[in-house]
Design a protein around this nucleic acid. Structure first.
Lengths: 145, 145
DNA sequence: CTTAATCTCAACTAATTTAATAGACAATAA
DNA sequence: TTATTGTCTATTAAATTAGTTGAGATTAAG
């Protein structure tokens, strides 16, 4: 499951995508529109800003905007940034591979191959949709291979 | 990510599958072979027994065995039983659907359709492999549609 | 050059979930 | 009757997640 924080991050990014090219959006506006606790949102937006996906400016008339065009930000990217990996188990992660704790030797693992397949299918989908897509009902059914 | 408990459950079930048809396997044996804390394993095996996937007998020469042929137990089943759902968000679960907390209205949700796709692809894979499959390197590449 | 508006950041607290253990009890075979 | 093995509820411990506090740092405008 995605954490609450990751879900907030996704909604915040969608909001920024909606206002892309229209100047800075303030934290308070995002928080209200997306029902996110404002103080918690500062943590999330700071993280996203550090990652480069979001740009920001302080002071009067400051705010946040996408640091990268929405078409270049996939849902896969967002989840990777917020939770580190798309995989179901650490040893099946491509970008953040790690041994699973208390597990048998990786070579003897009987599910790793399967978990890698799941990860790849998941990545395939999540990386095919980006913040400029509408992601309505079945808008991307064709993207689903 | 799958919880440690779910991963232990999967390994325990693989172990039981290995000894399917060969009489009861004792908890202590599973614990040792699969490096699972024995007391914790009692909790896990009791849960699996209650679900019907595992059968058990108490007393001398007692133990556990599969209550269902290994070919009829998919990895999807195991994960559903242990964590309730295959989905990334509660609202994208098929069997355990639930509204996401602190979210916008489900109809206005911009990611639900995507999350449903991810869930379905995941289910597709996880339900196609069962405890009688070897799940080695690429043993199931053809299963991957 | 002061003020109000905004973001930044580290530290902290609270809540929840996950992992693991304890210990009394029930069933079974010998 | 005893040793063995699973069952169950409660409890504790550890880790993670969610959310808050409060003291800065920047910026635009007057």
């Amino acid at each position: 499951m995605l954490s609450q924080k990751t879900r907030y991050a996704i909604r915040a990014m969608q909001h920024l995508a909606d206002f892309h090219g229209k100047g800075p959006v303030q934290l308070a506006d995002i928080a209200e529109a997306q029902k996110i606790p404002p103080k918690f949102l500062t943590v999330i937006l700071s993280e996203l800003t550090r990652s480069g996906l979001v740009a920001s400016q302080r002071g009067k008339d400051g705010g946040y905007w996408l640091g990268v065009p929405p078409i270049d930000i996939s849902y896969g990217d967002l989840i990777r940034i917020m939770r580190g990996s798309l995989a179901l188990v650490p040893c099946a992660s491509r970008y953040a591979h790690e041994r699973c704790r208390n597990c048998v030797e990786e070579e003897n693992c009987r599910t790793r191959a399967l978990m890698l397949q799941v990860r790849d299918k998941t990545a395939n989908l999540l990386d095919s949709i980006n913040l400029s897509d509408s992601v309505e009902a079945d808008a991307f059914l064709q993207a689903a291979e």
